[in-house]
Computed example of a mutant assay.
Amino acid sequence: MTTDSLRDRLVAAVGAVTDPELRRPLSELGMVRRADVAGTTAQVEIALTIVGCPAAARIEQDVRDAAASVAGVDAVDLELSVMTPAERADLIERLRGVRHMPFTPDSLTRVIAVTSGKGGVGKSSLTANLAVALARRGLRVGLVDADVHGFSIPGILGLTDADGHVTRPTRIDDLIVPPVAHDVKAISIGMFLREGEERSAVAWRGPMLHRTVQQFLTDVYFGDLDILLLDMPPGTGDIAISVGQLLPHAEVLVVTTPQPAAADVAVRSGLVARQTGQRVVGVVENMAPLTLPDGTVLELFGSGGGQVVADQLSLGGEVVPLLASVPLSPSLRTAGDSGIPVVVASPQDAAARAITALAETIAAQGRGLAGRRLDISVR
């Protein structure tokens, strides 16, 4: 075996290691500074993106394992360094590409805003579980917690420690890499508050809210996504208008409870989304009747509200279906409080099964071609 062939196999093995945050091979990211052999010892240098990289230990172990797996290597001499400013700038340019707003109508990413007319309908729990259920189907999923005043996604996904401190995103200069939970890349304003302020109120008005949503969409590196979910705040205020301006091609999923008071307001959120050009793809009825162990049905919030919303949003020949009816579930609540979504913690729970079925329905719908530019030339 020649030294060159051993080196080539070492380079391939080390370069194939995936950065756990950026989810791309180290060779693509320009992080492999050196991979050589001296006798039977592999000599490898990896340039981390930043000082104090939170993924450093994972990368070091994965690189050591990859190098040691190469036949002919008996020892691994690994050095970790840090990228120069020029190397980071080159990396950021490669990651961002030429697009400033990545989620344009031409993007292959399907953008779905999950909205409701009023608070307290379980929209955030539904959105987080839907994101995880889609990821468990093998889709690449991102989640933006656009409910700035009432953010809760980090807690539901378990992106907090035992003291309640929220997991921070990694910053590579001005590029923000979101943390990942249950294979979902998530971002929330709660991740940017100073330590100890996670439970404080965010008292912002229109311009600040618009800028925050815009930064989530432009400065956060989600990579290539199949679906981006937005957990919208209740109502039809500033953020709903901003998302309508920034993502007029987004689809909208309306969440309601069976209660008429919630259903009536949910219709308004769908109508406002439609006014901005967004398409309402369906309605989800949450906290629907629960079948008890003795067979009786508990209709705590009544029944039928989801279908009422779907019918009232079916206007001008556009049919808006009731996509799912998610029953009341103690497991859904306790799983959210523990940071392990119910679709993971109790997949056989009735609510988990309904959300999983919803994910299958949404995944089957696919991304339409309407409004997307196709790079096709006719000769």
Rank of each mutant, 00 (worst) to 15 (best):
G97Y: 09
C53M: 00
K118V: 05
D90S: 15
R140E: 14
A89V: 08
G72I: 02
G122M: 13
I50G: 08
P25H: 02
P102W: 14
V98Q: 12
V144R: 14
A133V: 09
E45L: 07
S125V: 12
S116E: 04
V82Q: 02
V148K: 05
R140N: 15
D8E: 14
N129D: 14
A68Q: 03
A89I: 06
A68G: 04
M83E: 10
T109E: 13
R34A: 07
V17Y: 05
R58N: 10
G138F: 14
P85I: 00
A133S: 09
E21D: 08
D62G: 08
K123L: 12
I112E: 05
A86D: 09
H100V: 09
L143P: 10
L91W: 15
I59L: 12
A67T: 03
V44R: 06
A12E: 02
H100K: 09
P105Q: 03
T109D: 04
G15N: 09
D65P: 02
T109L: 07
T40F: 00
T18C: 14
P105S: 06
A75C: 05
G119H: 13
D65F: 03
T109W: 07
D36N: 01
S69K: 01
R7M: 08
K118Q: 03
I112A: 06
D106L: 10
G52F: 06
A135D: 07
R34Y: 07
K123A: 02
S27E: 02
Q43N: 12
L126P: 08
R140H: 12
R137M: 10
V76D: 04
R110L: 13
G120K: 04
R7F: 09
V114T: 02
D106M: 10
I112Y: 15
F151V: 06
L95M: 12
R96H: 09
L130K: 15
L95H: 07
I46H: 01
R23K: 08
I153L: 10
T115P: 01
G97R: 14
G120N: 01
A128N: 10
L29W: 11
R24T: 02
A128K: 06
V63Q: 08
I59H: 06
S124R: 04
G150D: 08
T104V: 15
R110G: 14
A89W: 01
D19L: 04
A68K: 05
G117C: 14
C53T: 01
D19I: 02
A56S: 15
A135K: 07
C53L: 06
S27A: 04
H100D: 11
A75T: 07
L6R: 03
G122V: 09
G52L: 05
R140F: 11
V82P: 04
A66N: 01
F103V: 08
A75Q: 03
V144M: 15
G117P: 13
T40Q: 00
T40C: 00
L6T: 01
S152K: 07
A71L: 04
D8F: 10
V44T: 05
R64K: 03
